[in-house]
């Protein structure tokens, strides 16, 4: 705004502060909850200020054995499972989408557009819609309770294929011709020219897909029955449903807090590339 009216400025700030508070409050409560002991969390009213048990809870939750000898499921293992799943989904989706977009844009083969539209139509078939047949297939392949079972059905991605197709279409044809005259074969061109040119787009997509993979709930819930293969997002729900005992809110909150950490790290680490991917146009 070019106008300089104090009232408008104050109003704008109030609205923004309200918005931030709305988003931050649950995170704050989670943090506070993770810093009290289990007994305090069962008393009303729930505390609004942090307690002194944060590192005790962290140790107990992360490793699964507290200072006082109580045992809970170690969250580091679930985080590891989630990490493997999210990485496999993100990397797998990017690799397959890059290759399929490359085929669609740069190669002439019969029914090229038909293939493209077939890929595109799968946008209408997310896991939730095809859950029964997919489960059947994965079960028959013996991939229940494995990383492959967790990730393979989620890897094919029409969105990413479409995005890379658009990226490749913006790369001038002369780039390909120039590479052909330089003697670069199809794989060489892909590796030396296309990949570096879509670097920022890959980074942006990686952030989105990593979080998508990390937050998967329904599919891991179905496919994993073994506690060793459980992901962190599923485990939060399991902890709440431990019906024979009162929920350990401090542990649950700490788990939730830990579940937030890797996506935040990925976003912060990829931030610069991410923004560049959205703004850079020099092709």
């Amino acid at each position: 705004m070019v106008e300089n009216r104090p009232f408008v400025t104050i109003l704008a700030h109030l609205v923004l502060i309200f918005g931030v508070a709305l988003v931050a409050l649950p995170v704050w409560i989670t943090f506070v909850g993770a810093s009290h002991d289990g007994a305090r969390m069962l008393q009303a009213p729930i505390p609004m200020w942090p307690g002194d048990q944060f590192f005790v809870n962290l140790r107990q939750t992360f490793l699964g054995n507290g200072l006082d000898g109580t045992r809970t499921a170690p969250v580091w293992m679930m985080m590891f499972n989630s990490l493997v799943m999210a990485m496999m989904i993100a990397v797998g989706k990017i690799a397959i989408s890059l290759l399929s977009a490359y085929a669609i844009v740069y190669f002439k083969f019969p029914f090229r557009m038909g293939v493209f539209w077939m890929i595109f139509i799968t946008l209408m078939l997310p896991v939730e819609v095809r859950i029964l047949p997919t489960f059947e297939v994965i079960a028959d392949l013996g991939m229940l309770n494995s990383y492959w079972g967790l990730t393979v059905p989620l890897i094919a991605s029409a969105t990413a294929t479409f995005m890379f197709r658009q990226v490749f279409l913006t790369i001038p044809d002369e780039m390909l011709e120039s590479a052909r005259i330089d003697g670069a074969g199809p794989m060489r061109f892909f590796w030396d020219i296309l990949l570096p040119l879509s670097r920022t787009n890959i980074a942006a997509l990686f952030v989105i897909l990593f979080i998508y993979g990390w937050n998967q709930y329904l599919w891991p819930l179905l496919i994993t029955t073994d506690a060793n293969m459980m992901t962190i997002v599923v485990s939060i729900k399991q902890m709440l449903e431990a019906s024979e005992q009162t929920p350990q809110w401090n542990i649950i909150m700490m788990t939730a807090l830990l579940a937030m950490v890797p996506p935040i790290i990925v976003v912060i680490a990829m931030q610069r590339l991410f923004v560049k991917g959205l703004t850079e146009t020099d092709k």
Binding site: P172, E174, M175, E177, S178, A179, R180, I181, D182, G183, A184, D192, I193, P196, L197, R199, D282, K283
Partner: peptide, 20 residues
Amino acid sequence: EPADRDIAMVFQNYALYPHM
């Protein structure tokens, strides 16, 4: 193939590889 014809070409928009 173009690479085997022993030619070099200069394009209108130069077609330099931007990342190199």
